[in-house]
């Protein structure tokens, strides 16, 4: 494992190399992909990217939580959370790529 962290810059660099647009335009396109995905999710839509995975929005009911430090009970408001379910292909590639040698 190399334990590096990639950012938007690495993704736009990959787009730049692959398609040969300017670096600026590549960065804008990466941003607009993330923006469209976010907008769809905020609308409550599921975002399903074949061979990558599915992002879905789930409603969580209100519940009583507890402050772990003080033990005090605090109400947790109902909220919407995002879950990502990786595709089989991604799971396999991640499992294979990180398997210990030998």
């Amino acid at each position: 494992m190399s334990d590096k962290t990639l950012t938007r810059m690495d993704l736009s660099e990959a787009v730049f190399r692959e398609v040969g647009l300017s670096r600026n335009e590549s960065a804008d396109l990466v941003e607009s992909v993330l923006q469209h995905m976010s907008d769809a999710l905020v609308q409550g839509e599921q975002v399903k990217i074949s061979s990558f995975g599915t992002f879905s929005v789930r409603d969580k009911a209100a519940r009583m939580g507890r402050n772990p430090k003080t033990g005090e009970e605090v109400p947790i408001q109902p909220r919407r959370v995002l879950t990502f379910r990786p595709s089989h292909l991604m799971k396999d590639r991640v499992a294979d790529g990180n398997r210990r040698q030998g």
């Binding site: 334990d3 590096k4 962290t5 990639l6 950012t7 990959a14 692959e18 398609v19 990180n98």
Partner: peptide, 21 residues
């Protein structure tokens, strides 16, 4: 372009890297 973005994220994770957006 779109395929490259998702491919790049998957490749990074296959190497054990993180992708922080």
């Amino acid at each position: 372009i779109v395929n490259t973005i998702f491919e790049e994220i998957t490749n990074a994770m296959a190497r054990g890297d993180r992708v922080e957006l």
